[in-house]
Amino acid sequence: MSALLEVSGVSVSFDGFRAINNLSFSIGPAELRAVIGPNGAGKTTFMDIVTGKTRPDQGEILWGDRSRSLLKLNEAQIARAGIGRKFQRPTVFEDQSVADNLTLALKANRNPFAVLGWRPSNASEARVVELAAELGLADQIDRKAGELSHGQKQWLEIGMLLAQEPRLLLVDEPAAGMTLAEREQTTALLCRLAQTRAVVVVEHDMDFVRRLNCKVTVLHQGSVLAEGSLDRVTRNPDVIDVYLGR
C-alpha cells in the first residue's frame, strides 16, 4: 500500500539550530500513528512543515495518490488538499452554537460572492447532525460552544476539521486536561476516524498512547529515533536514555 504522506530527508534550521534533521516519515491512507519524544524533539516543527507554516531547507514532502509535492503549495492550498491540523488549545466560536460552529466549517466554495449568498441546505443540515452524533455531541447541538466542557470543545474542534473532509488529521495532545471519561471517548473517536483516514496524534501522555494501541514514532533532535509498537519502542535503550529515563 502506497503512503498517503511521505516526508523524505527533510531538514530545517532556525538561527543555526537544526530543529528537523534529515527526517523521513510516512503514513498510510487509513492509519493511526502516535508521535512522541522529549521537548525540543521536533514534533511541532514536523507539523508546521507538513501544513506549510514552515518551509524546510532541504528534502521533499509528497502527498496523495499522485505524489504531488506539498512544498509547492501554501497553507490554504495544503488545507484544501486534505490536511487538517488541530492545535492543543481548542479554538471554537464560543458565542455560537455547536451546530453553527460545524456549519461554518463545512467544505464549501469560499468565493466571497458564494459566501454572501450561502444558505444551509437539507444536505448541509443533515451533515451537521451526522457530525455532532459522530463526536458524541448530538445532545449538545443547540448549546453555545462556550458552555461545553474542555473535552467537548476538543471534540467540536475535531468535528470542525472533519467538516472539511480531510484525508489526514494532525492532532496535538488531545488528551490534555480531559477527564478519564473524556479521554476514553477521545480514544474511541480517534480510533474510529483512523478507519477511513490517516490520523497522527502528537502526545506526551504514555497511558493515552497505550490506549490508542497503534504504531509509535519516537522523534529525537529532529529525526526518527525509533518506530514500532509502544512496547517495542519503550524497551529501546536509546529511547529509555533520551526520553523515558528523564
Rank of each mutant, 00 (worst) to 15 (best):
L148G: 14
V199M: 09
T196P: 07
Q96L: 15
A194Q: 09
Q58H: 03
S124P: 02
K153S: 11
P38W: 01
Q152P: 03
W155I: 02
R232P: 00
P174H: 08
M160P: 05
A30R: 13
D139Q: 09
S223M: 12
R210C: 00
N21F: 02
L169P: 13
R80P: 02
G146K: 10
A133T: 06
G82L: 01
N236Y: 04
G146L: 06
H150K: 06
E203V: 10
R210D: 07
P29D: 10
R183C: 11
Y243H: 05
Q221E: 14
E182R: 03
L71V: 09
T217P: 05
N109E: 14
P112K: 11
V233L: 05
V199W: 02
R68S: 12
L131K: 01
G52H: 13
S121Y: 08
N236W: 10
E182N: 10
L168C: 09
S121M: 04
R232G: 01
V98H: 00
V12K: 04
M1T: 10
R68P: 01
A114P: 06
T179K: 02
I141P: 03
G42I: 07
R89I: 04
T44K: 00
T196H: 10
G159W: 13
V201P: 11
L106F: 03
S2Q: 15
R55D: 00
A198Y: 10
L225Q: 07
R210I: 03
R246T: 09
Q164A: 15
Q58N: 04
L156G: 11
D241R: 15
S223W: 11
A181L: 05
K72H: 10
D57H: 09
H150A: 11
Y243F: 14
T234V: 14
T187M: 12
N21I: 04
L135C: 09
L244F: 14
T187F: 10
G42W: 01
A132S: 11
